[in-house]
Simulated assay, not measured.
Amino acid sequence: MRYVLVGTGNISNTYVAALDERSGSELVGCVSRRGRALPAAPDLPCWPDLASVDRPFDAVILATPNGLHHQGAIEAAELGKHVLTEKPLDIAVVAMDKMTEACRAAGVTLGVCFQRRTSPDNRVVKALLDDGQLGRVFAADLSAKFYRDQGYYDSGDYRGGMALDGGGPFMQQACHNLDLYAWFFGLPEQVVSMLGTFAHQIEAEDHGAALMRHGNGMIGTVVASTATRPGFSARLEVHTDRGSFTLTDDSISFWDIEGLANPGRQDFQYAHDGATSASVTDTSAHQAIIEDFEAAVREGREPLAGAASARLTTELILQIYRERV
């Protein structure tokens, strides 16, 4: 497929590299609000908007700030182009509704780059949970204690704000981890959260915790932070009536489930954990998301992270923000 990359900020470098590694996938140029060429591909053409693109293309990749995703998706859908957006789907329910409906009405595919879903261990855990093979889950504890310095937030006037970022680490850095939580367990019925700003000069939170109860009785906890120096690996500890397991940075690091051998891929390791930096050097997971997206278009199916599934992540985060005490 041929892509136009919308947005030329830091994350655009990741998509340039990922597409460069994929045979049959081509980046034809970019769209930039500020007329800025792609840092990783400065020789490619750059247009002010999608309507100005004068080369054939099939899909867009949205690498704009979170709160602008719906705008790019609607514009692409009106041109009949498929849409793969950087996470999250968007930061507001009404925005997600509008972009989803626009893509549905245009008959184009809408996918979200929640690339951690492509991890072999995450996928096998998802399958085991869906099949009920892990027993009754009664507790799930997520820790996403990362660190970003003030320079990170100062690098973009939208960073750490509510209007475009949509929040602090819950909506931004820990979004991938909360996506796995929502993908595995769905949305809770009750949420109580406490959020604060401790280490940065930003509008949103930089540290917080939430306590959640699900309809089946499961109790979940999550801590998300960009204030916990020096930054730690993300961990999801799950406890069931048949035992326990732990996922650390998308790999099964502990397994003790009665009657089930550890299904983890010991040879798998995703190099980017997000604990200390937003930079991505290992694009293999992004390549996997693009591969699945293209297959979804060919096969007329939902992508691995389609709109209906991906919106749950934003809904969960909005619950956490709404129920703060």
Rank of each mutant, 00 (worst) to 15 (best):
V31F: 13
G35N: 09
E86N: 12
S52G: 15
P39E: 15
S32A: 07
D90A: 05
L84W: 07
E78Q: 09
E75Q: 03
V94S: 11
M99I: 00
D97E: 00
E86L: 13
G67A: 00
A41G: 09
P42K: 10
T64V: 12
L62I: 13
A73I: 11
L62M: 12
S52R: 05
E78I: 06
A92S: 04
A95W: 00
C30Y: 15
A95V: 00
L62T: 06
A76D: 14
E86T: 09
A63V: 15
V60S: 03
H82C: 05
E75P: 05
A73C: 13
G67M: 02
A51Q: 14
D49M: 10
Q71W: 01
M99Y: 07
S32C: 14
D58R: 15
E101Q: 02
V83A: 08
P56W: 15
A102V: 05
L89Q: 03
C46D: 01
L38T: 12
L38Q: 09
G72R: 03
D90R: 02
A59C: 12
L68H: 04
T64L: 08
L84T: 09
G35A: 13
T85C: 14
I61L: 04
M99P: 03
E86Q: 11
P88M: 05
G80V: 10
T100H: 04
N66G: 00
F57C: 14
Q71F: 01
G35L: 11
V83N: 13
A77C: 06
H82L: 06
K87D: 08
L79N: 13
L68F: 00
V83I: 14
R34I: 04
P88G: 05
K98L: 01
T100L: 03
M99T: 02
A76L: 06
C30L: 10
P48S: 09
K81C: 13
